[in-house]
Design a binder for these strands. Sequence first.
DNA 1: CCTTGACCTTCCCATCATGGGAAGCCTTAT
DNA 2: ATAAGGCTTCCCATGATGGGAAGGTCAAGG
Lengths: 137, 137
Amino acid sequence: MNIGQAANASGVSAKMIRYYESTGLIAPAGRTQSNYRVYGAEDVHTLRFIKRARTLGFSMDETAALLGLWQDKSRASADVKRIADAHIAELEQKIAELRAMTDTLKHLVHCCAGDNRPDCPILEDLAQSDAPERMNA
Amino acid sequence: MNIGQAANASGVSAKMIRYYESTGLIAPAGRTQSNYRVYGAEDVHTLRFIKRARTLGFSMDETAALLGLWQDKSRASADVKRIADAHIAELEQKIAELRAMTDTLKHLVHCCAGDNRPDCPILEDLAQSDAPERMNA
DNA sequence: CCTTGACCTTCCCATCATGGGAAGCCTTAT
DNA sequence: ATAAGGCTTCCCATGATGGGAAGGTCAAGG
C-alpha cells in the first residue's frame, strides 16, 4: 500500500503521515526500491488510532502517550484513565471559557438595536472595559 | 508614555503592541528623537478595546473590523451586531464540538476500571473506530 | 562625570498541527 | 511512447504569542 492508499484508508492525509513519521510519532515506513513508502494493514490501524485520538482533541503529545500505552501489552488501565481524565478537565476548562464569552456577547447583542443608528452597546462595552493595571506614567 | 507604560496601562504586552502596529491593526506610534515609540491616553484606550475584543475570542480580523466600526462615527449598529452574531455562532459551534468530545471521553472513562489490569475500553475505542473511507488498495 | 540597571529598538526563531506548492522522479494506462 | 497522476523532498504559511540576542538610550546614584 502506498502512502495515498494508507491516507484514504486511515483518514489521515499523506502530508500528515509524513509529518508523524518525521516527529517520531510513528516508525519510519518501509520503502520500495523507488523510495516509495509502503504501509500494511497494521500501519493503517495505528493511523486510525491516531486520527481518532486527535479527533477527540488529544494533543500530539497525549496521543503519543496513548499510542505507547496501546502498544504496551502490560499497561495499567489506570495510566490511560489518568490521561483521559486530565484531558477531560482541559476540555471542560475550555468549554467554560467559551461559554463565558458567549454569555457576555449574547447579553451585549441582546441590548443592541441592530439598526441604522450608530449607538451600539457592544462597542461601548469593548471600549469601556476597566483598566487591567494602574497606569504608572 | 513609552511602550512599557502603555503595555501596563492596557494589559497588552509590548511585544504584541509592536506586532499590532506591524500588521496595521493600529497606526504607527509617534517616535521620540531616540526612536522610542510614544503613546497617549487615546492609544491606551484603543489597546484596551483590542484587548477586550481578543479576550472575548474575536480573531484579529474581527477585532480589526470592530475597531473600524468603533472609530466610524456614522456606523450602523446592525453592522456590529452582525459580526457579534457570527462570532457567537462560531463559539457555539466550537462548544458543541468540545462537548461531543468530553461526552465521548467521559463515557469511556466511566467504563474503564482504572486499575492495574491492562484491559481498557478507552484504548479499545481509539483502536476500533470504523474506517473513515474505503480502502482502495 | 561615569557607571549601572532598566528600558527601548530591530531581527530571528519557536510554538502547534496542518496545508500549499514547486521541482523532479516513478508508475500505470493508453 | 506519451500523458496523467502519484510519489519524493524541501520550503513557506497560517494565528497569536513569547523568547532571546545584540545594541542603543535614559535616569539615578556614587
